[in-house]
Amino acid sequence: MKKFEKRVIPVLTIAGDKLVKTIKFRKPNYIGDPVNAVKIFNEKMVDEIILLDITASQEKRVPNYAKIEEICSEAFMPFAYGGGIQSLQQVDLLFQAGIEKVVLNSILNSNLNLVKEIGEKYGAQSVVASIDIKKNVFGKNYAYSHSGMRKIKEPVEVYFNKILNAGVGEIMLNSIDRDGTFQGYDLALIQKYSTLSKVPLIACGGAMGVNSFTLAIQNGASAVAAGSLFVYRGEQKGIMINYPSQEELVEKVFKKL
């Protein structure tokens, strides 16, 4: 029995009120109704859920509070929301809707002070920084905001440390190149940044099965997240909400750590 079980987190990406799934942050494919998906994940007793509105910042939309509240009423597990968050006032409304963590991404590049403001009111553990990484043609990593649309000029290490020092409780590191590809996590990326991070690092992007989780955790991830893996089944990518049983995770992941 492993003493410290790691979290296995479904990431639900929505565009407005529709559940969608992308490949490399492009080609959003309609999956269904997020409320229904959360109900199923609830029955499967998932460790946590991260809900991301991936078009909110681009379209300059505020979070859809009513929808989030509806989704949360079915969520008896930790629930994080990200997408379009720009102010403490919005965060207040999100907490009132029933979430307990906010995921910040695009705002980190323009107003890092928001991290501190949220931390003082709700505690650092309630702030997740999401950093999206993409390689250029020479294989060099760059961070991106606005759902992969805007490149951050600073080197990733500098950007990462700046965000870490702002007082976030967790960092979610997402590989844009691996998103929806079922190629496995970018282990080199996970290893590098989990070493630099004092706070838990959530690995995301590319998971192809429970074996991917083991590798990510062995390379330093404190938690593993996946989108496509939990909404598709099989090579034809038929839509089927799924999640490994606790027994399977213990046997195939936690016992191997």
């Binding site: 410290f4 079980e5 790691k6 553990q125 409780g169 004092k198 706070v199 404190s222």
Partner: peptide, 11 residues
């Protein structure tokens, strides 16, 4: 060192 703070997870 693998126990990062905050402790966040199931136990």
């Amino acid at each position: 060192p693998t126990c990062k703070i905050p402790n966040m997870g199931w136990n």
